[in-house]
């Protein structure tokens, strides 16, 4: 089964080299088999300030196991060669800037990446990310947090991004998010610009996914997979596939 059978559109997050290289290749396959509509590949960074404990710990492990940016691109190239599922790469300004923004974007495009998500390169401090991405035919995805003021929302809309990433609450990744009227209205507000809204932060259950997808284009699931891998570090593929299938509705 594949994403075409999925009832619910999931953007599944994962980290190359977590828990190690080979296992992370299997995790990617498990997410694809589990019906993920998009893959978000996080390139681990030493100082992931937007992430909660689960993803922080996973990034630290991945760095210990030998993740480097060039290994990350190898992982992504292998992945895009074997799946039509669109791959987005997420990382932090520190890493993207150290590898030169233009070059990072170009390498991403050559590796078959569909989009880039760099939360701390916002549209008005982007070091040329959005222009480089447009040139290279890659989506640069602005990240918008619940509670952003109307003037920030309009500024972000003005770049005309096809995808926007909505954090459904304040704080960092990982802890539970209640889907209620406030964050639903926030997603609706973003969707009105015509952008496809990828909504996430604290999504771990099918009920949350369903609630989010009444409003958003896709539900982003991250820490829940990281936790599933952490509980089964030697054989993560099955539990990850089962979780993904449950969330995407193919299983």
């Amino acid at each position: 089964m594949t994403r075409d059978d999925a009832a619910y559109r999931i953007m599944a997050h994962m980290i190359p080299f977590f828990p190690d290289y080979d296992a992370s290749v299997q995790v990617a396959s498990a997410l694809i088999d589990g019906g993920a509509s998009y893959l978000e590949i996080q390139f681990p960074y030493s100082d992931p300030t937007a992430d909660g404990p689960a993803i922080q710990g996973a990034c630290a492990t991945a760095l210990d196991r030998g993740f480097t940016v060039s290994e990350g691109w190898r992982f992504v190239r292998d992945l895009t060669a074997r799946t039509p599922v669109p791959v987005f790469v997420m990382s932090y300004a520190g890493l993207v800037y150290a590898h030169e923004v233009q070059r990072f974007v170009k390498t991403a495009a050559d590796a078959g990446v569909s989009g880039l998500i760099v939360p701390d390169l916002p549209v008005d401090s982007d070091e040329g990310l959005f222009a480089a991405a447009a040139d290279a035919g890659v989506h640069a995805v602005p990240v918008i947090a619940m509670g952003a003021g109307e003037s920030r929302l309009r500024l972000i809309e003005s770049v005309g991004a096809e995808y926007v990433y909505a954090s459904l609450r304040r704080g960092t990744t990982g802890s539970h998010t209640e889907i209620g009227p406030e964050n639903s209205a926030f997603v609706d507000r973003l969707a009105r610009s015509g952008a496809r809204v990828l909504a996430g932060f604290g999504i771990a259950t099918r009920e949350q996914v369903r609630a989010v997808l009444d409003h958003a284009h896709a539900a982003v699931v991250g820490s829940a997979f990281v936790r599933a891998i952490g509980e089964n570090p030697t054989a993560p593929a099955d539990p990850v596939r089962r979780l993904c299938a449950r969330l995407s509705g193919i299983g």
Binding site: L121, P122, S125, A145, G149
Partner: peptide
Amino acid sequence: MNSGFFGAFGGRYVAEVLRGPLDE
């Protein structure tokens, strides 16, 4: 571009969630 630069250094490279509190 906001001020807060010293030559090429400085700036406000934060995720959107912290943009509001910094502006405030």
